[in-house]
Nucleic acid binder design. Structure first.
Lengths: 212, 212
DNA sequence: ATTGGTCATATGCCGGTTGTACATGACCGG
DNA sequence: CCGGTCATGTACAACCGGCATATGACCAAT
Protein backbone atom coordinates (compact mmCIF):
# COMPACT_ATOMS: atom_id res chain seq x y z
CA UNK A 1 0.00 0.00 0.00
CA UNK A 2 1.29 3.37 -1.00
CA UNK A 3 0.59 5.65 1.93
CA UNK A 4 0.39 4.98 5.61
CA UNK A 5 -3.00 6.59 6.04
CA UNK A 6 -4.62 3.88 3.91
CA UNK A 7 -2.69 1.22 5.77
CA UNK A 8 -3.97 2.61 9.04
CA UNK A 9 -7.50 2.63 7.69
CA UNK A 10 -7.32 -1.01 6.64
CA UNK A 11 -5.89 -2.14 9.94
CA UNK A 12 -8.42 -0.20 12.00
CA UNK A 13 -11.33 -1.30 9.87
CA UNK A 14 -10.33 -4.90 10.36
CA UNK A 15 -9.87 -4.46 14.07
CA UNK A 16 -13.31 -2.92 14.35
CA UNK A 17 -15.02 -5.40 12.03
CA UNK A 18 -13.68 -8.40 13.89
CA UNK A 19 -14.35 -7.02 17.35
CA UNK A 20 -10.74 -6.67 18.29
CA UNK A 21 -11.98 -3.21 19.18
CA UNK A 22 -15.42 -4.00 20.59
CA UNK A 23 -18.42 -1.76 19.89
CA UNK A 24 -18.78 1.04 22.37
CA UNK A 25 -15.21 0.79 23.58
CA UNK A 26 -13.15 3.89 24.12
CA UNK A 27 -9.82 4.07 22.36
CA UNK A 28 -7.40 6.93 21.83
CA UNK A 29 -5.08 8.08 19.14
CA UNK A 30 -2.10 7.24 21.34
CA UNK A 31 -3.39 3.73 21.98
CA UNK A 32 -3.95 3.10 18.29
CA UNK A 33 -0.52 4.44 17.43
CA UNK A 34 0.94 1.79 19.70
CA UNK A 35 -1.23 -1.01 18.38
CA UNK A 36 -0.67 -0.19 14.72
CA UNK A 37 2.92 0.97 15.02
CA UNK A 38 2.04 3.93 12.80
CA UNK A 39 2.50 7.63 13.41
CA UNK A 40 -0.10 10.08 14.48
CA UNK A 41 -1.00 11.62 11.14
CA UNK A 42 -1.93 8.32 9.44
CA UNK A 43 -3.93 7.18 12.45
CA UNK A 44 -5.67 10.52 12.66
CA UNK A 45 -6.63 10.56 8.99
CA UNK A 46 -7.91 7.01 9.20
CA UNK A 47 -10.03 7.94 12.20
CA UNK A 48 -11.49 10.95 10.42
CA UNK A 49 -12.49 8.69 7.58
CA UNK A 50 -13.93 6.03 9.88
CA UNK A 51 -15.87 8.72 11.72
CA UNK A 52 -17.36 9.96 8.48
CA UNK A 53 -18.41 6.40 7.68
CA UNK A 54 -19.89 6.06 11.15
CA UNK A 55 -17.57 3.31 12.31
CA UNK A 56 -16.26 5.47 15.14
CA UNK A 57 -17.35 8.61 16.90
CA UNK A 58 -14.77 11.24 17.72
CA UNK A 59 -15.58 13.23 20.83
CA UNK A 60 -13.12 16.10 21.07
CA UNK A 61 -11.12 16.16 24.27
CA UNK A 62 -12.71 12.91 25.33
CA UNK A 63 -11.64 10.19 23.03
CA UNK A 64 -12.66 8.00 20.15
CA UNK A 65 -15.56 5.63 20.63
CA UNK A 66 -16.03 2.58 18.49
CA UNK A 67 -19.60 3.01 17.28
CA UNK A 68 -22.20 0.71 18.74
CA UNK A 69 -23.86 -1.72 16.33
CA UNK A 70 -27.39 -0.46 16.52
CA UNK A 71 -30.25 -2.27 14.86
CA UNK A 72 -32.02 0.92 13.80
CA UNK A 73 -28.83 2.20 12.19
CA UNK A 74 -28.36 -1.12 10.45
CA UNK A 75 -31.90 -1.02 9.06
CA UNK A 76 -31.20 2.42 7.65
CA UNK A 77 -27.99 1.19 6.12
CA UNK A 78 -29.85 -1.67 4.48
CA UNK A 79 -32.65 0.61 3.30
CA UNK A 80 -30.05 2.46 1.29
CA UNK A 81 -27.95 -0.52 0.37
CA UNK A 82 -30.93 -2.24 -1.21
CA UNK A 83 -31.37 0.49 -3.79
CA UNK A 84 -27.72 1.04 -4.37
CA UNK A 85 -26.80 -2.59 -4.73
CA UNK A 86 -29.67 -3.20 -7.08
CA UNK A 87 -28.30 -0.47 -9.31
CA UNK A 88 -24.75 -1.71 -8.96
CA UNK A 89 -25.46 -5.30 -9.92
CA UNK A 90 -27.64 -4.24 -12.84
CA UNK A 91 -24.85 -2.07 -14.20
CA UNK A 92 -22.30 -4.76 -13.47
CA UNK A 93 -24.30 -7.37 -15.38
CA UNK A 94 -24.51 -4.93 -18.26
CA UNK A 95 -21.00 -3.54 -18.34
CA UNK A 96 -18.55 -6.08 -16.93
CA UNK A 97 -15.63 -6.78 -19.22
CA UNK A 98 -14.79 -10.30 -20.25
CA UNK A 99 -11.82 -10.39 -17.90
CA UNK A 100 -14.03 -9.21 -15.06
CA UNK A 101 -16.65 -11.85 -15.80
CA UNK A 102 -13.97 -14.49 -15.63
CA UNK A 103 -12.78 -13.27 -12.25
CA UNK A 104 -16.36 -13.07 -11.05
CA UNK A 105 -17.09 -16.63 -12.06
CA UNK A 106 -13.90 -17.74 -10.36
CA UNK A 107 -14.93 -16.11 -7.13
CA UNK A 108 -18.41 -17.57 -7.40
CA UNK A 109 -16.85 -21.01 -7.53
CA UNK A 110 -14.63 -20.31 -4.56
CA UNK A 111 -17.71 -19.18 -2.64
CA UNK A 112 -19.65 -22.28 -3.63
CA UNK A 113 -16.79 -24.47 -2.48
CA UNK A 114 -16.35 -22.60 0.78
CA UNK A 115 -16.81 -24.96 3.66
CA UNK A 116 -15.09 -23.35 6.62
CA UNK A 117 -16.49 -21.35 9.49
CA UNK A 118 -13.73 -18.81 9.95
CA UNK A 119 -15.38 -15.40 9.79
CA UNK A 120 -12.15 -13.61 9.06
CA UNK A 121 -11.39 -15.76 6.05
CA UNK A 122 -14.94 -15.44 4.81
CA UNK A 123 -14.80 -11.71 5.41
CA UNK A 124 -12.01 -11.38 2.89
CA UNK A 125 -14.09 -13.26 0.33
CA UNK A 126 -17.04 -10.96 0.97
CA UNK A 127 -14.85 -7.93 0.55
CA UNK A 128 -13.54 -9.29 -2.74
CA UNK A 129 -17.09 -9.91 -3.89
CA UNK A 130 -18.12 -6.35 -3.13
CA UNK A 131 -15.05 -4.98 -4.83
CA UNK A 132 -15.55 -7.06 -7.96
CA UNK A 133 -19.18 -6.03 -8.28
CA UNK A 134 -18.68 -2.31 -7.90
CA UNK A 135 -15.65 -2.40 -10.18
CA UNK A 136 -17.67 -4.20 -12.82
CA UNK A 137 -20.35 -1.51 -12.58
CA UNK A 138 -17.78 0.92 -14.00
CA UNK A 139 -18.97 3.83 -11.91
CA UNK A 140 -16.50 5.00 -9.31
CA UNK A 141 -19.14 7.02 -7.50
CA UNK A 142 -21.14 3.91 -6.80
CA UNK A 143 -18.10 2.25 -5.26
CA UNK A 144 -17.55 5.37 -3.24
CA UNK A 145 -21.08 5.33 -1.87
CA UNK A 146 -21.33 1.60 -1.34
CA UNK A 147 -18.00 0.82 0.28
CA UNK A 148 -18.92 2.32 3.65
CA UNK A 149 -22.32 0.64 3.60
CA UNK A 150 -20.83 -2.72 2.89
CA UNK A 151 -18.27 -2.19 5.63
CA UNK A 152 -21.02 -1.35 8.09
CA UNK A 153 -23.13 -4.30 6.98
CA UNK A 154 -20.25 -6.73 7.28
CA UNK A 155 -19.44 -5.47 10.74
CA UNK A 156 -22.98 -5.82 11.98
CA UNK A 157 -23.28 -9.27 10.49
CA UNK A 158 -20.04 -10.56 11.99
CA UNK A 159 -20.88 -8.97 15.32
CA UNK A 160 -24.20 -10.81 15.59
CA UNK A 161 -23.50 -14.17 14.05
CA UNK A 162 -25.03 -16.82 16.25
CA UNK A 163 -24.54 -19.87 14.08
CA UNK A 164 -21.53 -19.00 11.90
CA UNK A 165 -21.46 -22.18 9.81
CA UNK A 166 -25.09 -21.88 8.69
CA UNK A 167 -25.06 -18.15 8.14
CA UNK A 168 -21.78 -18.24 6.26
CA UNK A 169 -23.20 -20.84 3.92
CA UNK A 170 -26.37 -18.89 3.30
CA UNK A 171 -24.43 -15.69 2.64
CA UNK A 172 -22.02 -17.51 0.37
CA UNK A 173 -24.90 -18.91 -1.62
CA UNK A 174 -26.68 -15.55 -1.98
CA UNK A 175 -23.53 -13.77 -3.05
CA UNK A 176 -22.73 -16.59 -5.42
CA UNK A 177 -26.09 -16.20 -7.14
CA UNK A 178 -25.48 -12.52 -7.70
CA UNK A 179 -22.04 -13.17 -9.10
CA UNK A 180 -23.24 -15.84 -11.51
CA UNK A 181 -26.10 -13.68 -12.74
CA UNK A 182 -23.69 -10.82 -13.37
CA UNK A 183 -21.32 -13.14 -15.11
CA UNK A 184 -24.08 -14.26 -17.49
CA UNK A 185 -25.22 -10.70 -18.08
CA UNK A 186 -28.69 -11.45 -16.81
CA UNK A 187 -29.75 -8.13 -15.32
CA UNK A 188 -33.12 -9.29 -14.05
CA UNK A 189 -31.72 -12.31 -12.30
CA UNK A 190 -28.91 -10.22 -10.88
CA UNK A 191 -31.17 -7.59 -9.38
CA UNK A 192 -33.48 -10.32 -8.05
CA UNK A 193 -30.55 -12.02 -6.38
CA UNK A 194 -29.40 -8.72 -4.98
CA UNK A 195 -32.82 -8.07 -3.48
CA UNK A 196 -32.82 -11.56 -2.02
CA UNK A 197 -29.49 -10.87 -0.37
CA UNK A 198 -30.83 -7.69 1.11
CA UNK A 199 -33.96 -9.46 2.28
CA UNK A 200 -31.73 -11.96 4.01
CA UNK A 201 -29.70 -9.20 5.63
CA UNK A 202 -32.83 -7.38 6.77
CA UNK A 203 -34.27 -10.57 8.15
CA UNK A 204 -30.97 -11.27 9.87
CA UNK A 205 -31.11 -7.85 11.48
CA UNK A 206 -34.62 -8.42 12.79
CA UNK A 207 -33.57 -11.83 14.07
CA UNK A 208 -30.82 -10.27 16.18
CA UNK A 209 -33.52 -8.06 17.63
CA UNK A 210 -35.40 -11.11 18.87
CA UNK A 211 -32.30 -12.86 20.18
CA UNK A 212 -31.24 -9.81 22.14
CA UNK B 1 -18.81 26.48 12.91
CA UNK B 2 -17.20 24.46 15.65
CA UNK B 3 -14.00 23.20 14.16
CA UNK B 4 -11.69 24.73 11.60
CA UNK B 5 -11.56 21.66 9.40
CA UNK B 6 -15.24 22.03 8.53
CA UNK B 7 -14.76 25.74 8.00
CA UNK B 8 -11.93 25.00 5.61
CA UNK B 9 -14.08 22.48 3.79
CA UNK B 10 -16.92 24.94 3.32
CA UNK B 11 -14.63 27.68 2.08
CA UNK B 12 -12.79 25.42 -0.34
CA UNK B 13 -15.97 23.84 -1.64
CA UNK B 14 -17.37 27.28 -2.38
CA UNK B 15 -14.19 28.42 -4.06
CA UNK B 16 -14.23 25.35 -6.27
CA UNK B 17 -17.95 25.43 -7.00
CA UNK B 18 -17.88 29.05 -8.07
CA UNK B 19 -14.71 28.74 -10.12
CA UNK B 20 -12.62 30.91 -7.87
CA UNK B 21 -10.35 27.90 -8.16
CA UNK B 22 -10.87 26.93 -11.80
CA UNK B 23 -11.08 23.28 -12.87
CA UNK B 24 -7.72 21.79 -13.66
CA UNK B 25 -5.80 24.44 -11.78
CA UNK B 26 -2.92 23.48 -9.55
CA UNK B 27 -3.02 24.73 -6.00
CA UNK B 28 -0.96 23.79 -2.97
CA UNK B 29 -1.54 23.45 0.73
CA UNK B 30 0.59 26.51 1.36
CA UNK B 31 -1.39 28.63 -1.10
CA UNK B 32 -4.68 27.56 0.42
CA UNK B 33 -3.42 28.27 3.91
CA UNK B 34 -2.78 31.83 2.81
CA UNK B 35 -6.11 32.24 1.03
CA UNK B 36 -8.18 30.78 3.83
CA UNK B 37 -6.14 32.14 6.70
CA UNK B 38 -6.35 28.70 8.29
CA UNK B 39 -3.61 26.44 9.51
CA UNK B 40 -2.24 23.41 7.85
CA UNK B 41 -4.19 20.66 9.58
CA UNK B 42 -7.64 22.05 8.78
CA UNK B 43 -6.70 22.68 5.16
CA UNK B 44 -5.22 19.22 4.89
CA UNK B 45 -8.26 17.50 6.33
CA UNK B 46 -10.55 19.47 4.06
CA UNK B 47 -8.46 18.47 1.06
CA UNK B 48 -8.54 14.81 2.02
CA UNK B 49 -12.30 15.00 2.18
CA UNK B 50 -12.58 16.89 -1.10
CA UNK B 51 -10.29 14.34 -2.73
CA UNK B 52 -12.49 11.50 -1.54
CA UNK B 53 -15.48 13.27 -3.04
CA UNK B 54 -13.57 13.79 -6.28
CA UNK B 55 -13.55 17.57 -6.15
CA UNK B 56 -9.75 17.64 -6.12
CA UNK B 57 -6.98 15.21 -6.92
CA UNK B 58 -4.02 14.99 -4.61
CA UNK B 59 -0.84 13.97 -6.38
CA UNK B 60 1.78 13.30 -3.74
CA UNK B 61 4.88 15.43 -4.07
CA UNK B 62 3.31 17.29 -6.98
CA UNK B 63 0.40 19.28 -5.78
CA UNK B 64 -3.35 19.41 -5.53
CA UNK B 65 -5.32 19.68 -8.73
CA UNK B 66 -8.84 20.98 -8.85
CA UNK B 67 -10.66 18.18 -10.66
CA UNK B 68 -11.74 18.85 -14.22
CA UNK B 69 -15.49 18.93 -14.85
CA UNK B 70 -15.74 15.97 -17.16
CA UNK B 71 -18.97 15.12 -18.91
CA UNK B 72 -18.47 11.38 -18.56
CA UNK B 73 -17.90 11.76 -14.84
CA UNK B 74 -20.97 13.93 -14.56
CA UNK B 75 -23.10 11.34 -16.35
CA UNK B 76 -21.93 8.74 -13.88
CA UNK B 77 -22.75 11.01 -11.00
CA UNK B 78 -26.23 11.50 -12.38
CA UNK B 79 -26.68 7.81 -13.02
CA UNK B 80 -26.26 7.28 -9.30
CA UNK B 81 -28.01 10.44 -8.18
CA UNK B 82 -31.14 9.45 -10.03
CA UNK B 83 -31.61 6.32 -7.96
CA UNK B 84 -30.53 7.86 -4.72
CA UNK B 85 -32.62 10.97 -5.03
CA UNK B 86 -35.67 8.97 -5.98
CA UNK B 87 -35.27 7.01 -2.77
CA UNK B 88 -34.57 10.13 -0.73
CA UNK B 89 -37.62 12.06 -1.89
CA UNK B 90 -39.88 9.05 -1.45
CA UNK B 91 -38.72 8.63 2.12
CA UNK B 92 -38.90 12.36 2.72
CA UNK B 93 -42.50 12.50 1.49
CA UNK B 94 -43.29 9.63 3.79
CA UNK B 95 -41.38 10.63 6.90
CA UNK B 96 -41.00 14.39 7.06
CA UNK B 97 -42.15 15.87 10.34
CA UNK B 98 -44.70 18.65 10.41
CA UNK B 99 -42.04 21.21 11.21
CA UNK B 100 -39.96 19.97 8.28
CA UNK B 101 -42.92 20.15 5.92
CA UNK B 102 -43.43 23.75 6.94
CA UNK B 103 -39.82 24.65 6.26
CA UNK B 104 -39.99 22.79 2.97
CA UNK B 105 -43.07 24.67 1.85
CA UNK B 106 -41.41 27.93 2.87
CA UNK B 107 -38.39 27.16 0.75
CA UNK B 108 -40.60 26.11 -2.15
CA UNK B 109 -42.19 29.55 -2.06
CA UNK B 110 -38.84 31.29 -1.91
CA UNK B 111 -37.75 29.27 -4.93
CA UNK B 112 -40.93 30.12 -6.83
CA UNK B 113 -40.41 33.80 -6.11
CA UNK B 114 -36.77 33.72 -7.06
CA UNK B 115 -36.15 36.16 -9.86
CA UNK B 116 -32.44 36.91 -9.78
CA UNK B 117 -29.59 35.57 -11.86
CA UNK B 118 -26.89 35.43 -9.23
CA UNK B 119 -25.56 31.88 -9.24
CA UNK B 120 -23.99 32.21 -5.82
CA UNK B 121 -27.24 33.28 -4.20
CA UNK B 122 -29.14 30.55 -6.02
CA UNK B 123 -26.46 28.06 -5.05
CA UNK B 124 -27.25 28.62 -1.40
CA UNK B 125 -30.93 27.95 -2.06
CA UNK B 126 -30.06 24.74 -3.87
CA UNK B 127 -27.91 23.64 -1.00
CA UNK B 128 -30.71 24.33 1.45
CA UNK B 129 -33.08 22.35 -0.73
CA UNK B 130 -30.78 19.35 -0.76
CA UNK B 131 -30.25 19.57 2.97
CA UNK B 132 -33.94 19.79 3.74
CA UNK B 133 -34.76 16.82 1.56
CA UNK B 134 -32.15 14.47 2.94
CA UNK B 135 -32.91 15.55 6.49
CA UNK B 136 -36.58 14.86 5.95
CA UNK B 137 -35.69 11.38 4.70
CA UNK B 138 -34.50 10.60 8.23
CA UNK B 139 -31.65 8.42 7.10
CA UNK B 140 -28.22 9.86 7.80
CA UNK B 141 -26.54 7.40 5.45
CA UNK B 142 -28.50 8.76 2.55
CA UNK B 143 -27.34 12.28 3.35
CA UNK B 144 -23.84 10.97 3.60
CA UNK B 145 -24.00 9.37 0.16
CA UNK B 146 -25.87 12.16 -1.55
CA UNK B 147 -24.04 15.23 -0.29
CA UNK B 148 -20.97 14.67 -2.46
CA UNK B 149 -23.10 13.91 -5.50
CA UNK B 150 -25.10 17.06 -5.09
CA UNK B 151 -21.93 19.05 -4.61
CA UNK B 152 -20.50 17.62 -7.80
CA UNK B 153 -23.72 18.22 -9.70
CA UNK B 154 -23.98 21.81 -8.55
CA UNK B 155 -20.41 22.47 -9.54
CA UNK B 156 -20.84 21.06 -13.01
CA UNK B 157 -24.05 22.95 -13.51
CA UNK B 158 -22.62 26.30 -12.39
CA UNK B 159 -19.49 25.74 -14.43
CA UNK B 160 -21.43 25.22 -17.66
CA UNK B 161 -24.31 27.63 -17.34
CA UNK B 162 -24.72 29.42 -20.65
CA UNK B 163 -27.97 31.27 -20.01
CA UNK B 164 -28.11 31.66 -16.23
CA UNK B 165 -31.47 33.39 -16.01
CA UNK B 166 -33.32 30.68 -17.95
CA UNK B 167 -31.55 27.74 -16.37
CA UNK B 168 -31.93 29.12 -12.87
CA UNK B 169 -35.65 29.45 -13.40
CA UNK B 170 -36.01 25.95 -14.75
CA UNK B 171 -34.00 24.49 -11.89
CA UNK B 172 -35.97 26.52 -9.35
CA UNK B 173 -39.21 25.20 -10.80
CA UNK B 174 -38.08 21.57 -10.82
CA UNK B 175 -36.82 21.74 -7.26
CA UNK B 176 -39.97 23.52 -6.21
CA UNK B 177 -42.12 20.71 -7.57
CA UNK B 178 -40.19 18.15 -5.58
CA UNK B 179 -40.48 20.20 -2.42
CA UNK B 180 -44.21 20.68 -2.78
CA UNK B 181 -44.82 17.00 -3.47
CA UNK B 182 -42.81 16.08 -0.39
CA UNK B 183 -44.70 18.62 1.65
CA UNK B 184 -48.01 17.07 0.60
CA UNK B 185 -46.75 13.58 1.28
CA UNK B 186 -47.38 12.50 -2.31
CA UNK B 187 -44.69 9.89 -2.87
CA UNK B 188 -45.50 9.20 -6.49
CA UNK B 189 -45.52 12.84 -7.46
CA UNK B 190 -42.31 13.39 -5.51
CA UNK B 191 -40.42 10.60 -7.22
CA UNK B 192 -41.77 11.72 -10.60
CA UNK B 193 -40.57 15.24 -9.95
CA UNK B 194 -37.23 13.92 -8.83
CA UNK B 195 -36.86 11.93 -12.04
CA UNK B 196 -37.80 15.00 -14.04
CA UNK B 197 -35.09 16.97 -12.31
CA UNK B 198 -32.58 14.30 -13.11
CA UNK B 199 -33.76 14.17 -16.70
CA UNK B 200 -33.20 17.89 -16.89
CA UNK B 201 -29.71 17.56 -15.41
CA UNK B 202 -28.83 14.75 -17.79
CA UNK B 203 -30.13 16.73 -20.72
CA UNK B 204 -28.18 19.74 -19.51
CA UNK B 205 -25.04 17.65 -19.42
CA UNK B 206 -25.52 16.43 -22.98
CA UNK B 207 -26.21 20.00 -24.08
CA UNK B 208 -22.84 21.13 -22.76
CA UNK B 209 -21.35 18.38 -24.87
CA UNK B 210 -22.80 19.93 -27.99
CA UNK B 211 -21.82 23.47 -27.06
CA UNK B 212 -18.25 22.46 -26.37
C1' DA C 1 -23.73 15.89 50.43
C1' DT C 2 -22.33 19.44 47.53
C1' DT C 3 -19.37 22.61 45.58
C1' DG C 4 -14.91 24.43 44.06
C1' DG C 5 -10.54 23.68 42.31
C1' DT C 6 -6.90 20.90 40.44
C1' DC C 7 -4.98 17.44 37.56
C1' DA C 8 -4.69 13.91 34.12
C1' DT C 9 -5.69 13.07 29.48
C1' DA C 10 -7.89 13.70 25.26
C1' DT C 11 -8.08 15.87 20.50
C1' DG C 12 -7.31 20.30 17.75
C1' DC C 13 -3.92 22.54 15.81
C1' DC C 14 0.67 24.13 14.31
C1' DG C 15 5.25 24.47 12.17
C1' DG C 16 9.44 21.96 11.09
C1' DT C 17 11.53 17.89 8.89
C1' DT C 18 11.75 14.22 5.54
C1' DG C 19 11.30 11.86 1.30
C1' DT C 20 10.01 11.99 -3.39
C1' DA C 21 8.87 13.47 -8.11
C1' DC C 22 9.85 16.59 -11.54
C1' DA C 23 12.40 20.22 -14.09
C1' DT C 24 16.59 22.17 -15.35
C1' DG C 25 20.96 22.37 -16.85
C1' DA C 26 25.63 20.48 -17.22
C1' DC C 27 28.16 16.93 -19.08
C1' DC C 28 29.37 13.34 -22.23
C1' DG C 29 29.26 10.70 -26.49
C1' DG C 30 28.36 10.47 -31.30
C1' DC D 1 27.25 20.81 -33.14
C1' DC D 2 23.45 17.97 -31.56
C1' DG D 3 20.97 14.14 -28.59
C1' DG D 4 20.74 11.79 -24.62
C1' DT D 5 21.79 10.98 -19.82
C1' DC D 6 22.72 11.99 -15.28
C1' DA D 7 23.32 15.09 -11.29
C1' DT D 8 21.27 18.72 -8.87
C1' DG D 9 17.95 21.98 -7.26
C1' DT D 10 13.27 22.97 -6.15
C1' DA D 11 8.62 22.43 -4.75
C1' DC D 12 5.39 19.66 -2.93
C1' DA D 13 2.68 16.41 0.25
C1' DA D 14 3.59 12.98 3.99
C1' DC D 15 4.71 12.71 8.32
C1' DC D 16 6.12 13.79 13.05
C1' DG D 17 6.22 15.63 17.66
C1' DG D 18 4.97 19.31 20.65
C1' DC D 19 2.00 22.96 22.31
C1' DA D 20 -2.78 24.86 23.27
C1' DT D 21 -7.12 23.99 24.91
C1' DA D 22 -11.19 21.58 26.59
C1' DT D 23 -13.26 18.16 29.47
C1' DG D 24 -14.31 14.98 32.88
C1' DA D 25 -12.69 12.77 37.24
C1' DC D 26 -11.21 13.19 41.63
C1' DC D 27 -10.41 15.18 45.99
C1' DA D 28 -10.77 18.38 49.66
C1' DA D 29 -13.13 21.84 52.17
C1' DT D 30 -17.28 23.56 53.83
Amino acid sequence: MANKADQAYDVLERMITFQELPPGSLVSEARLMERTGLGRTPVREALQRLARERMVEIHPSQGVFVAATSIEAQLKVLELRRSLEELAVRLAAHRATTAQRERILELAEVLAAFDGDDPQEFGDLLKQTHTLIVDAAHNEFISLSMAPLQGLSRRFWFAHLRDPKTELHEAADLHGQILRAICHGDETKATDASLQLNDYLTDFTYRTLRHQ
